[in-house]
Design a protein around this nucleic acid. Sequence first.
RNA 1: GGAGAAAUGGCAGAGUGGUCGAAUGCGGCGGUCUUGAAAACCGUUGUCCGCUUAUCGGCGGACCGGGGGUUCGAAUCCCUCUUUCUCCGCCA
Length: 424
Amino acid sequence: MLTLKQIRENPEEVIKRLRIKNFDASDLIHQVLEADTERRRIQTETDARQADLNLKSKEIGALLQQQKVEEANHARQEVAALKEDLKQLNQELHRLENKLNELLVLIPNLPHSSVPPGKGAPDNVEVRHGGAIPELNDQALPHWDLGTKYGLIDFDLGNKLTGAGFPVFTGKGAKLVRALIGFFLDEAEKEGYREVLPPLMVNEASAYGTGQLPDKEGQMYQLATDPYYLIPTAEVPVTNIYRDVILDAGELPVKNTAYTPCFRREAGSYGKDVRGLNRVHQFDKVEIVQIQHPDKSYDTLEEMVSHVEQLVMKLGLPYRILQLCGGDLSFTSALTYDFEVYAAAQKKWLEVSSVSNFESYQANRLRLRYREPGSKKTLLAHTLNGSALALPRIIAALLENNQTPEGIKIPEALVPYTHYKTIP
RNA sequence: GGAGAAAUGGCAGAGUGGUCGAAUGCGGCGGUCUUGAAAACCGUUGUCCGCUUAUCGGCGGACCGGGGGUUCGAAUCCCUCUUUCUCCGCCA
């Protein structure tokens, strides 16, 4: 969430910048300012009363030690009214703190100054593209048919075992998944990321820390028996490693990578672009996460984009990089680049990665801070993450683009992991 | 799942109702000494919020796993939750 300081110091600027996200914050911001002023007034009052009470208590203690029981009892009676006041004040303080927090959580992150205005996907701006779009003949099959034809993916079986959106990979298909995971992790490791294998369920505090709660509750699967959520992305556990942590500036950047399955309910997206692997409820993804100094976080964002770009290039997939417009930017992001690869049989661009700088928005919720050498002051760090990469759509594009009469060709970079060159 | 023990500052570890933000040790930082380093010695050492301050800072409040309670006063007593350890059961 935004810091109170940001809002207090420049409320009009905050409102103005959130308009780029098509978010009208004026009402919320004014409520925040009001609650904040009131909270500070009450706290000053509460602190003063508490100080009085503390003093009185010490006096009573001293009197009792001097055996002045009479006077002590008298003082005790005096304190009763003070305590009553204090109780009221504390309740009010709690109420205001809660209200303030509830309001702050409803305000999205500010978009970076470079974010173009716009309502949705059509307004995203292409940054660059690469790779050649293959020419396929009329007999070219979409990946869901290829998956069945070569015995790689069984959608019906997934339906039987679980339900729609839970494909089963079999044979060389399963091996391909494992190969991609290994490849992506190795590439990340070469770039200095530490590998983490986190829990696939998180508690409420973690879901809250990265902003899944309270905003996107409907996106996550929640357990019926325990207060845990299945992770929608490795970002959640991996970023939350640093919840309530104070780092030394010298430790930055902190680079972690993780492979995890991801679970998404995708409520409300039925019927649109959901065929085959285009949109599923469980999928595999390698995520890269960095914690960086605020002065360097945008350099880091570019570095992460170029890492992802290397991956799609090595896989030989035609891709384009888009900068998301205000309307398409997520609640918590300040700047996001989406990667799309072209699936030549469907003739569609599929999103395979989203690389974002959250600046201090997540860090504020996480209480993730850093300290400059020799300084006592703690400052909010910046967090960034990106998919590197999400598997299903990569597989869709690989299958479709590389289909030949002899079978499906595997990109050179992947062969050391698949140990086969073709799926005949 | 059952029985018992425990959770204190970066770490270790005292503290069972008042003068405890908390002894002591280690670590960290600053200094003395030294050609330099080590050792020794001296000093210092948490986080958050509010008020005040041009700044350094000053003052107040909160925090001893989380939440609630008793009391004029709680690290200390009570309730509850979480976690850890030991034993038993079950189990990959």
